[in-house]
Design a protein around this nucleic acid. Structure first.
Lengths: 105, 105
DNA sequence: CTGTATCCCAGACGATACTG
DNA sequence: CAGTATCGTCTGGGATACAG
């Protein structure tokens, strides 16, 4: 829970679970997150050993974030949350279900 | 995550997953929780439809909390957290692992 | 593009004390 | 036994603006 408790953290891990992604890609994946919070969460996850941060020597510079082995351990938890969250959301609303709402609410 | 995000919430759902329990039993199950927070979490979970609260007509009065069907939906998530948390804790420390630490840290 | 710097505040949490 | 009341602290998160 310490690892997944921060705002947007489950969404973030989920977005990185398929493939490494860059800062701006994550911003696009999760439109409502602010740059500040995204940065904060990425720093925290890096400090906890959940993700890695690699600066690619391009111009303009790009930065790639990827799950570590530890990060991949968390995927089953996210999957359980998504599964339950989707089921519960479908029970109360018939509208389409967004991934963000499932992981946050 | 909204349902499980509060402090001690996963521990609480876990404690209720096997059988209904009373206020003082929960305090004993989770020694470091304060009465105020326990009460607050129970009220919140009740409002969210995760648990039920039944006052038993005994003297002195006792109150029993139980998971609803919705609450039982959350058990797989807790199990996933416990499974991963236990594994990760074992990787970094060789000391015995407490359930509270697995669910909180 | 990839961030940091400020400011701000609601609310969550904890300790302690008190009550029907 | 099963809570409430009160107080204080702290930090997480959001908006906005700026920077290398």
């Amino acid at each position: 829970m310490k690892l997944l408790g921060g705002a947007w953290t489950p969404s973030l891990v989920w977005c990185l679970s398929a493939e490494p992604r860059r800062f701006s890609e994550l911003r696009a994946d999760i439109p409502r997150i602010s740059a500040k919070v995204l940065s904060a969460r990425l720093r925290a996850l890096e400090a906890e050993g959940v993700i890695t941060r690699s600066v690619l020597p391009t111009s303009p510079p790009s930065v790639e974030y990827a799950l570590t082995e530890l990060g991949r351990e968390l995927i089953p938890v996210i999957e359980a949350i998504v599964r339950v969250g989707t089921k519960l959301t479908r029970m109360t609303a018939m509208a389409p279900v967004s991934l963000e709402s499932v992981l946050r609410d």
